Amino acid sequence: MRARREETNGQRGSRSQYALANQILDIVRDRRLEEGDRLAEVALATQLGVSRTPVRAALSLLAQEEIVRARPNQGYVLLKGWTALKSTILAAPSSSDDELYLDLIRERLQGDIPNTVTQTMLLDRFKTSRAVLLRTLSRMAEEGIVTKNKGRGWTFQPAIDTSVAMRNSYDFRIMVEPAALMLETFEIDMVALDRARARHLWLLEQGEMLAPSSLELFAIDAQFHEMMAGFSNNSFFVQAIQHQNRMRRLLEYQGVQPVQRIVTWVKEHMEIMDALCANDRERAAQRMRAHLENAYVSTMKLTAEAQKAAAARSKTKGRERSNASRRRERNDVSAESDIAG
């Protein structure tokens, strides 16, 4: 496998910096801040639960996007008000970490790497640096994809990785998620709902330029469904959906969704949120059920296409190995003839 590119100092920011910058944008929208309003590092660090250093890096990123401006001895001020930033989201660039992350998932789904792996084995197979590998494995551990063994190595956790498991998962979600919207304890958090709407509007506004990574798409989708479960104020519903998201992560990452399908599920999410804003929970539950049924059909189609592509790649590799073997045999025969001659 070819050596993969490493991070360079020229990259504009890490994925965590982009995530923090988007959280700052959420704060701007929540507080209805206007052009010229000051963003204080100390206050932001306190609200976000981090130190000033990552906040400063995130503000610098926003300055590069001409959203804020640094002023001597005054910190940062907004160049745009909250209405102009209503659907603004910063998309993190692809990194070597992301490439390795997706390669690991792809080869795991194809059965090319075993259930338990070691760092040495992965370093040799993927030709990456130890730092990138450790960051990637730590990220996968945080997401519940792998766990670190007590001794050596890492173990992949059970996942929804077959068509039967996928059908069972969607059957469960179709029963649970609409029901969560109808509970007596259900209560909408309008701040969270506004944030979700902003993320979905951002996707729609991309138009034909819409090209988010499978990582970004899954994050937006998973956050939406966990938010809906969270409105139920029932921890068992929340835990159930979080568990389903962890289990389906691998299968959802394996292919690139067509733009039209992305637009469709974004609009379906918007319909659910619109129904909730209109205080029509029954309609929201109906739309949630229809959305999950559509998602199942789409996911199974995407899975079939990915499996077909993987089978084609495997067949090509098999032919290449066979041809290489025949060439070696011919060379051996030729060498023996030369010796005999």
Rank of each mutant, 00 (worst) to 15 (best):
residue 241 I to H: 05
residue 290 A to R: 12
residue 175 M to H: 15
residue 186 F to T: 08
residue 274 D to A: 06
residue 243 H to N: 10
residue 160 I to C: 13
residue 260 Q to C: 03
residue 245 N to Y: 01
residue 302 L to C: 00
residue 297 V to H: 14
residue 188 I to W: 01
residue 200 H to G: 05
residue 290 A to H: 09
residue 215 L to Q: 11
residue 215 L to P: 02
residue 214 S to D: 04
residue 238 V to I: 12
residue 291 H to Y: 12
residue 205 E to G: 06
residue 262 I to T: 05
residue 252 E to G: 01
residue 247 M to G: 04
residue 203 L to I: 10
residue 231 F to I: 04
residue 279 N to Y: 13
residue 199 R to I: 00
residue 167 R to H: 12
residue 163 S to K: 15
residue 225 H to T: 00
residue 167 R to S: 09
residue 208 E to Q: 11
residue 169 S to T: 03
residue 268 E to H: 13
residue 192 A to P: 06
residue 164 V to W: 09
residue 214 S to R: 14
residue 263 V to M: 11
residue 253 Y to Q: 15
residue 275 A to I: 04
residue 288 M to T: 05
residue 173 R to E: 06
residue 187 E to D: 11
residue 270 M to V: 07
residue 295 A to I: 01
residue 202 W to N: 15
residue 246 R to S: 13
residue 189 D to V: 04
residue 229 A to F: 07
residue 171 D to M: 03
residue 182 M to C: 04
residue 174 I to L: 04
residue 163 S to G: 03
residue 262 I to P: 11
residue 237 F to A: 07
residue 267 K to A: 09
residue 224 F to N: 08
residue 299 T to S: 06
residue 250 L to R: 14
residue 203 L to Y: 14
residue 250 L to G: 09
residue 196 A to Q: 15
residue 250 L to K: 14
residue 197 R to M: 09
residue 218 F to N: 14
residue 186 F to C: 07
residue 220 I to Q: 15
residue 169 S to M: 10
residue 239 Q to H: 11
residue 298 S to D: 15
residue 196 A to W: 11
residue 294 N to T: 13
residue 284 A to G: 10
residue 262 I to F: 01
residue 297 V to N: 10
residue 248 R to C: 07
residue 284 A to E: 05
residue 229 A to Q: 15
residue 230 G to L: 05
residue 190 M to I: 00
residue 265 W to V: 01
residue 210 L to D: 04
residue 277 C to H: 10
residue 233 N to I: 00
residue 291 H to I: 02
residue 210 L to R: 02
residue 192 A to M: 10
residue 224 F to H: 12
residue 184 E to M: 09
residue 232 S to C: 07
residue 185 T to C: 03
residue 297 V to Y: 13
residue 289 R to T: 10
residue 174 I to M: 13
residue 244 Q to N: 11
